[in-house]
Structure formats: C-alpha cells, structure tokens
Design a protein around this nucleic acid. Structure first.
Length: 466
RNA sequence: GACCCCAUCGUCUAGUCAGGUCAGGACGCCACCCUUUCAAGGUGAAAACACGGGUUCGAAUCCCGUUGGGGUCACCA
C-alpha cells in the first residue's frame, strides 16, 4: 500500500509555524515511505478564505522546500460529492433531518452545560416522523451517531483514545442552506484522496472520534491517525500574536534560511536520538511518526537563531551573495556598484561566521559598501586622538611600502612596523580600523585591508590624517 | 464546568514500550583559553526525572492518586 499523506490548511490567514511543522511531518513521512504528499485547501468557508492566504501557503511550503505531489485539491469544488454522501447516509438511515431553530438549540446547549453533559443536541428529531416537520423550515442533516458504547481511535502518537459515545451528540453534516460542514468534507475528501495517514494538530483529536464514526457508517476503511501536540509560546501558554506567532514568511523576512527553519521545526517535538543538525533528506530517512513526542513543546526563537547561524556559516558563498545583495541594496537604497560587489565577494566568506541571520549579515556587510569619505561614528571619533593619528601615520608608511598587496603582505608589514616601533599591534590596529571602516568593530583588520586593496586603504587612512 | 490527552535540566530532548547507566546530547547561561576590536572557535562548569502512595531485591521507566499544563465542547475549519 502506498503511503499518502496530506496537509489541509484553511486559507484564512498566514501559514503559521505550527502548520508548517504539520506539513513538514506529513512530507517527511511520505518521503520516508516513497509515498505521496498531497495538499488540500479547505476553503469551504468562502467568507473567510482569501487568495492572499492561499498564496502564503503555497509560497511558504515552497520556500521550506516542501513541494507537494500533484495539483492542490480545493475542497470548495467538491461540495456536490459531499452532499451525495450526506444523502447516502440519509437513505441508509444513518442520518436524519433536524428542524430545530437556533433558539431551540441554544436552550438545549444551556441545559446540557447545566448537566455537565457533552451532548449539546438532545436528539429531538432523531427518531421523529418526517410528517411532523414544520412547514417552511429548511432542515439540517444530522449524523445518527451511536448512543451507547464507546469509540476508540488508535492514534500513532497519542495511543488509544477512548470516548464514551454518550458524550457525543449528532453532528450536523449538511447545513440548512445545503452546504456540507467541515466534519463531513474532511472524511469524504480523505477517503476519496486515498489518504492513508492523517497527520495533523492535536486540536483535531476529538474530531477524529466523530470522524471515525462517519467512516464506520459509510463502511470505509479507516486511515491511520496521528495527532501531533501543538506548539506553545515561550511561556508555555497558547501561541498567540503577542508571542510573535508569525507567518512563515516573517521568518524568511527576518533572514532565517529555510534549512534552519526546517531543521528547527523537525527537532521540535520529534527526535532521532541525539541528532541535532540534519538536512530534510536525512530527516526523511529517519522519520517515524511514533518518534513524535506526546507533550506540547515551546517555541524557542533563540535555538532557531543558533541553527540559523550554523546554516549561514555552511552556506555556499555564491548562494549567500545572491541572498544578501538585495538586502544590502535595500539598506543602501540603490543597487550595488561593480566595485562593491567585488568587495562583497571577497569579504563575505569572512563575514558569514559573524552573523546569525541574513538580515544581520547584510547589516555588517554594509561596511564593504560604504564609500569614502567615511563619517566615523561617535566611538570612532573619540578614539582618534593625536596619539592614535601618530600610530596611523606609522601604519600608512608601512602599508605604502608594500609592493605586492595581499592580506598576508599587509599583516607582515604592520607586524614588523609595530615591532620596530615597540608598539603593541592593538595600538595600531584600532585607529586603522576606524580609518578603514568608520567604526570600532569589524572583522580582522588584515582581512579588511585585503578586501579594500592598497589604493583604497591608503586613501581612507589619508582621509583621517588630513 | 464536562470530556480527552500530557508531565526528564531555563528550553528542545535521549532514556520509558521489553525496570538495574555517575540520567546522555543540544540551545542558552557562567568560567577559562585564543585574540588587533567584536563575533566565531576551543575547553570546562552549574543545571532535571512535578508531588504522594504503591508493586519490586531494585522505579525516570509499571499501577493509583494529587497538582500543573494543553486540547475539544458551532448550521467555523
């Protein structure tokens, strides 16, 4: 049997971090077993569904590298089929028409709460003769759920979950306007799409109980269920906006590489022994649903950031430059000149170990893209006293004498000069740093010298000495 | 409130199913080393079996309870 999994978001907002992880787990499991990973857009709530949200889902999944198989299925296009199934249930005697008004329902609900019962609907129309139906009232169709016994879902993550059937009431399958409800649509679609493993958030666990009853009523084969614990905010409370529960695109915009996000998400709630850093390919070789933890985990931006730093360091220089250049151009407000690109190409490899995100990298890379004359920052100006300038003059002399310029040649010249003058290298390096970069913090000074080249370096020193 | 589920360092977790390890790793934190600044890197330290009862020669591991946390209770999905 081919494994078929699916990710079934409703396009009502952004693709959030929990949804992304659900998609990832589905993807991983399908890949592990050489199966198919499907995407279904649950857009039956037309008023809340938006094109924008749909795009966010597509773009988010692609950015993460979670390409789905085949065309996305739009649930809204399948309403006729869902209605057919409701009719089939009706003729099998497994569903019935209910004519209750919203007011009646509200009273029942109140009564149920008072009794502490989960049965919000009391089954008023369950066994009534259709001839008693009031005129002019459009009925809903309700599922005739079993009254006695219990329903057990064997969940791969949660184990056996048992609910007494008297806790469950008869859910609505078709609304008064004839449109199918989610509960019906999911079951029909999962069945029609031949989904073998339903892997989704824990918030659907109790739905699975009701859905199982529907499968049984239709005589359909049950998929395997796996309900993964939700992701909580850093304080252990439900993830909310104030936690920075952002769309996946926000993490992209903050400069996290997708492989870092995937790695982090995979490791959140799932583990393969002590492995911490791994690719999506490795994970798909290891992934077992049973290895997913049972308790909810907290979202930790710091750990994601450290993973991000790791992947930045590992990233291929060519790819890195492509990603960083637009960010720098943004900051500069214009495209980079040829010279700036060259400097970037030379300087980026030395820079990438110093930043945790692409955004941060583009910030520090700015140092290679500013043109002289520089405007030193406050700390830099403070440092440039007459003594510092004297050291700088010393450095200028030594550097001007270098014939074949290179990082190493510049280093040798400066070390010799410092030694001859009986100075500590730091006394010379710091003023030099200010002259070259306009700031007091930068990569190694020889590296900077190497990137700028002889002419530019000397000119920058002269700018300060004048 | 009712129902369902969960519980190992601050956080993510290994170990739990098949009881026996100084309870392991990672992030973070702290210290030290390296050092021309800041990072990075290296080395090291501190840090947990929620609590209470059982069962057992022996319990993080099995059972019960307590406490705490999460989820669900729509003609939303």
């Amino acid at each position: 049997m081919t494994v078929v999994t699916r990710f079934a978001p409703s396009p009502t907002g952004f693709l959030h971090i929990g949804g992304a992880r659900t998609a990832l787990f589905n993807y991983l499991y399908a890949r592990k077993h050489g199966g198919r990973f499907m995407l279904r857009i649950e857009d039956t709530d037309r008023t809340r569904s938006t094109e924008e949200a749909k795009r966010a889902i597509f773009n988010g999944l692609r950015w993460l590298g979670l390409e789905w198989d085949g065309e996305p299925v739009y649930q809204s296009t399948r309403a006729d089929r869902h209605v057919d199934i409701a009719q089939a249930l009706l003729s099998k005697g497994k569903a019935y028409r209910c004519y209750c008004s919203p007011e009646e329902l509200a009273v029942m609900r109140q009564a149920a709460r008072k009794r502490g019962s989960g049965r919000l609907y009391d089954g008023k129309w369950r066994d009534r003769d259709p001839s008693e139906a009031p005129r002019g009232v459009a009925p809903v169709i309700r599922f005739k759920a079993p009254l006695k016994g219990q329903t057990v879902v064997e969940d791969i993550v949660q184990g056996a979950v048992t609910v007494q059937n008297d806790q469950l009431d008869d859910m609505v399958l078709l609304r008064a306007d004839g449109s199918p409800t989610y509960m019906l649509s999911v079951v029909v679609d999962d069945h029609d799409m031949a989904i073998t493993h339903v892997v989704r958030g824990d918030d659907h666990l109790t739905n699975a109980i009701r859905q199982k009853q529907l499968y049984l009523a239709m005589g359909w084969e049950l998929p395997a269920f796996a309900h993964i614990p939700l992701i909580l905010g850093p304080d252990g409370a439900k993830m909310s906006k104030r936690h920075g529960a952002l769309g996946i695109d926000a993490y992209r915009d903050r400069g996290f590489p997708p492989e870092a996000v995937c790695n982090y998400l995979a490791r959140l709630g799932w583990s393969h022994g002590d492995d911490e850093i791994f690719s999506i390919e490795q994970a798909s070789g290891w992934f077992e649903i049973g290895d997913i933890g049972k308790s909810p985990s907290r979202f930790d931006l710091v750990k994601l950031t450290s993973l991000s730093a790791h992947y930045l360091k590992e990233m291929d220089d060519t790819r890195l430059i492509e990603k960083v250049m637009p960010l720098i151009a943004d900051r500069l407000g214009r495209a980079l000149t040829g010279k700036q690109r060259d400097r970037l190409a030379a300087g980026l490899p030395g820079l990438k170990g110093r930043a945790k995100t692409l955004l941060e990298l583009s910030e520090i890379a700015l140092l290679y893209c500013r043109e002289r004359p520089l405007e030193p920052d406050d700390n830099a100006i403070k440092l440039l006293d007459s003594e510092a300038k004297a050291k700088l003059a010393l450095a200028r002399e030594a550097l001007a004498a270098v014939e074949r310029w290179s990082e190493n040649a510049a280093e040798a010249a400066l070390r010799t000069a410092a030694n001859d003058a009986g100075e500590k290298l730091g006394k010379i390096a710091q003023p030099l740093r200010v002259a070259l970069t306009g700031g007091t913090v930068s990569p190694g000074i020889f590296e900077v010298l190497g990137v700028f080249g002889k002419t530019e370096s000397i000119s920058r020193i002269d700018d300060v000495l004048q």
